[in-house]
Design a protein around this nucleic acid. Structure first.
Lengths: 245, 245
DNA sequence: CGTAGTGTTGAGTCAAGTCAATGGTTGTGG
DNA sequence: CCACAACCATTGACTTGACTCAACACTACG
């Protein structure tokens, strides 16, 4: 069941949480879009600009990002294939942060007006998209906690768990082992640490057998223990179908 | 034009960003609710429970909160009179965090089903509420940056600026001086520092004339400078009316 | 085979945390 | 109206987790 239509993955990822009827699926697949292949680190959304298109990741990874005026970067969220990268700005007239490609990949750009029209006309799709927005907000909240109140190793373990869980939910990898799309510097930017400290902490974790690394592949011999250390509780990902309204 | 109806403040706060017609206002004011006076630190939303009511702050302040398994608390957001405290869970079947009263105050509890019905039937109100959800998400993102990438004094300055700006926008106080509803411990929990370190940092800031304190009242002799130090850029609050859709 | 991007490691520093004691405020009840 | 309790703020001495700077090694790719 490989995806022939670029927006297929979006439909699949939305229906993880809100079951979609055939009509709703078709309505999404009927959205207009322009398809583009992008280099790693290309901007999909730019802070300060009006968001006119909503990018949908067809392949590759992306990340949300803000920087302080001194230039320190903070990664706010990670995005996986099937994620729509700009639902967050559907109702805002100016982007308050940027989104960039993490790896090379393909993006389907849907005009925001078309998305807004669909949301107005199809309550089922609307519900799916609002749920998605709410889940993303929940992930932001967990990140505030992660970065504000956990130690280095817990923080790092936490992003690694989140990534594993989400990749697994989409069927793109197994939670206990996957190809890590982040450099150590990017991990640092995601958890509010320096690259050097991330390196040292990863080494410790490796030495203790908590994680195994081979090139960019990372795996967790004891997923349970990993979750404990991270304080990782899947609840905030709201993976179960949401029975609401 | 003092608010006789408990939901008046909600209408006012929503219409800061999305202009509301008379019909839309009336629809909101017609929502059913139960009114309650609450002690400080009472729970309005409890993590792990299904969110059946959406509390609207009529008076007093509240905060969103998550804790690590070791018991460290992180405050995720602050809520002011007029804020609906649980739009975030409108589409989620289980709460992923808690909301508590920061001060004593009054809350109007609106049944979630009524809110959902209104959102389905009135596109204007729907837009206002979705915009509100998106703005809150934007605030979460800024907090990730604040806590992840700024120094102690910048972090503290940043929450103080945000609070001032928001109080000012609602007409509840002036940005450059207001009654601070937070203890130093709560400030610490909001910015990911210890109470002791917050105390020392506030002292430094006072000594340098950056802030003035008298009991719980705080003021900023040089708002500009304060914003610079905080790296505070109002954009993320999306205060201007959102011209969208 | 060279170059640019990553990853690794060491030495020294510093921002923030911990522990602990003291002082000030506020509100409450006798 | 005072005394007490609970909560909050202040300060000092000491520790530590994370940062900085800097050098070097590995890998991939043209």
């Amino acid at each position: 069941m490989s995806a022939s239509h670029p927006l297929d993955l979006l439909v699949q990822s939305l229906s993880l949480r809100v079951p979609l009827s055939g009509t709703a699926r078709d309505a999404i697949l009927a959205l207009p879009f322009t398809f583009r292949s992008l280099e790693s680190s290309t901007y999909i959304v730019r802070e300060g600009q009006p968001p006119e298109q909503c990018g949908v990741l067809v392949s590759g990874f992306a990340y949300r990002q803000k920087t302080t005026c001194e230039g320190a970067r903070q990664i706010i969220a990670l995005h996986l294939p099937g994620d729509a990268v700009d639902f967050q700005h559907l109702f805002l007239s100016i982007s308050d942060h940027s989104v960039q490609m993490l790896t090379a990949g393909e993006v389907a750009f849907v005009p925001r007006s078309a998305l807004q029209a669909l949301v107005r006309s199809d309550p089922e799709v609307a519900k799916a998209i609002y749920t998605q927005i709410a889940v993303e907000a929940s992930i932001f909240r967990e990140w505030v906690l992660n970065v504000g109140r956990r130690q280095a190793r817990e923080r790092i373990a936490h992003v690694l768990c989140e990534l594993g869980s989400r990749l697994d939910a989409l069927g793109l990898a197994k939670r206990y082992g996957y190809e890590l799309p982040l450099t150590q510097e990017q991990i640092g930017d995601a958890v509010g640490l320096t690259q050097v400290h991330v390196n040292r902490t990863l080494k410790e974790m490796t030495d203790e057998g908590l994680i195994c690394r081979d090139k960019r592949r990372i795996s967790f011999p004891d997923w349970r223990r990993m979750c404990e250390i991270a304080g990782f509780n899947e609840r905030y990902l709201h993976m179960q179908p949401q029975m609401v309204g």
